[in-house]
Computed example of a mutant assay.
Amino acid sequence: MIEARTLYLFCSAAPPVFDVARVVEDAQARGWDVCLGLTPSAARWLEPSLDGLAVLTGHPVRSAYERPGDPDVWPPADALLFAPATFNTVNAWALGLTGNLVVGVAAEAVGRGLPVVAVPCANAAYARHPQFDRSVETLRAAGVAVLHGEGGHLPDPSGPDRPDHFPWAPALDAVEAAYRAR
């Protein structure tokens, strides 16, 4: 019998988010039940696709906290992948600023000791900001596998990365490795 595993796939508003349906399918092929969460901006970017993504995952796509007393519509997570994670998201997460659902749930996942992987997506100018390196190191020190730099995401010097440059397969491989190591 195959073990049921739930992956929370969280995405910020960066160009690789437009490839999220293929990533969901890849994760499902690896045996994951995928719940898709988006920052509010990413939800606006994908608005025409949200119903189809909900059908693909079998779960509502979420971008906002539920109201107090409302039941959670997702099963509990076994692992979390936050990709793409923008400059703003990485910094908010590292600083514990949980003003949106996906950053709040990601922060809580770290505290619960879940396997968590993040793939920042920031252009070279953002990546040179001093807070960015501090935030990446803070997340790593908290146990998050951050795929940034060699072996992960390398910022595009000319601007935001296109989806074909984004390391989706290594990100899913890192989730598998973190899940097995737990």
Rank of each mutant, 00 (worst) to 15 (best):
L46R: 06
H59Y: 14
G96W: 03
P163Y: 01
A107F: 14
F87T: 07
S135Q: 07
A177R: 15
V24S: 02
D164P: 13
A145D: 08
E150I: 07
R128E: 02
L114A: 02
A79H: 10
D156N: 08
T6G: 00
R128D: 01
L154V: 15
A4Y: 14
A106I: 10
A42V: 05
V20W: 03
A4P: 15
D133E: 12
V34C: 00
P155L: 11
A42I: 05
D26I: 09
D26H: 15
V24K: 13
D33Y: 08
A124M: 04
A125W: 14
L81R: 08
W74D: 07
L38V: 10
N91H: 04
R140A: 04
C121E: 11
A13E: 12
C11V: 04
F82K: 12
P40V: 09
L80E: 02
G58D: 07
G151Q: 07
F132S: 03
F82W: 14
M1E: 09
P120S: 12
G37Q: 03
A21E: 15
G143K: 09
L50N: 05
G99W: 08
L50F: 04
R22P: 07
A79M: 07
G69E: 11
G111R: 06
R5L: 07
P16N: 01
W45F: 15
P40W: 10
P130E: 14
S12A: 09
A21R: 15
A106W: 09
D72N: 05
P130L: 12
T57K: 05
R67Y: 15
F132W: 10
L114G: 00
P160T: 10
G149C: 04
A178R: 13
L81M: 06
L7D: 05
V175S: 03
N100L: 00
D133N: 13
